[in-house]
Design a binder for these strands. Structure first.
Lengths: 181, 181
DNA sequence: TGACAAATATATCGGATTGATATATCATCC
DNA sequence: GGATGATATATCAATCCGATATATTTGTCA
């Protein structure tokens, strides 16, 4: 199995911390990882299937509080795969900001629409920033001696710095759009 | 034709500025738009075909300096489609930073590897920042009265602010990784 | 002038991924 | 008891990327 299927490695990374169900993996994606990565159910479940088939993870039927769950655990082979990927150079870092796309082509629309896009971008950032700041504060307290928490802290700090810069830009963009008229 | 195929709208946006070949569209994606959007040949050519089939663009065989080119132009219908999309709320802004992903799972690897990832991220940003700063400076000179240039300027300013924040984070991350030992 | 690399230009294909949708069970609240 | 929402798994069409193939033109160095 090649090391270039990203989601294989993301899921193995999550499983390296703890055993998880597909649903729990999705939830983690939508919370902790959401500001720098994402994945859908439509990719998570087939990927888990593939990981089991190639021996990188194992499946365990668990009954917990009267509910049947399928929990996945990383294997030694899976850990080797994960480490090999971590050692490879980063292939791609990319942004896909539809807001900037619409802004770039905004000469085809009216200013009101454009300002609305910026405001809604700003609102989204303002809403997410407290969670990132909260994570930083919480992690700074408990990071001593825990490597996993330390790295989580570094990513959260990235998020805070980036989002603060975005908000500064929003102010400037709104000001320039206002002056323009 | 629905308004939810992003690449349709991106290409129509580019064609709203000037007629272009598929190749020129790809080049624009890899330069001006690269820090907030991307597209491959494997999506650009089929999309152009689709745009022509649905009457949003027209194809023109052009002979320029002994070379046969297929140039595409936006139609009035295409402009209507573009404007409708611009008026819709933004569906999704997303980051996919493999660097942050590898950092998040870095407790499975050694510190040397992690620092190397951060350094190479930093190098990439440092390399691209001058282009963005150059664009801002150039555009600030010629922006008067040109709406398209003004919006291009706003996106470039976003890039500069974001990239400067990234570099600050790189310094902090390297420092914290150093102190850790 | 000939050779070779690089840029221009178009096109296709497998595989990865999203977004939507479907199904079902369990927990909670009124 | 019924509604709603969370948990949980799964599939599918549409979309998109990355790699690859092909061919022509331009530029450069010998």
């Amino acid at each position: 199995m090649a090391n270039d299927k990203k989601l294989d490695c993301v899921i193995l990374g999550l499983l390296s911390h703890e055993d998880m169900t597909g649903y729990a993996i999705k939830k983690r994606m939508d919370t902790t990882l959401s500001f720098f990565w994402g994945a859908s159910f439509g990719s998570i479940y087939p990927t888990l299937k593939g990981l089991v088939e190639s021996g990188l993870a194992v499946k365990r039927n668990v009954v917990e509080s009267n509910r049947n769950k399928i929990t996945y655990a990383i294997t030694e082979q899976g850990r080797i795969h994960l480490r090999a990927w971590l050692a490879l150079p980063v292939q791609k870092d990319e942004i896909r900001y539809e807001t900037l796309l619409k802004l770039f082509f905004a000469d085809e629309t009216d200013e009101k629409t454009t300002i609305a896009h910026i405001r809604s971008f700003e609102a989204k950032i303002r809403k997410e920033l407290p969670f990132l700041r909260g994570a930083v504060q919480e992690l700074e307290g408990i990071v001593e001696g825990n490597r996993a928490h330390f790295y989580y802290l570094l990513t959260a700090k990235f998020g805070v710095k980036a989002y603060e810069a975005y908000l500064e830009w929003c102010e400037e963009a709104k000001r320039l759009l206002g002056e323009k008229e």
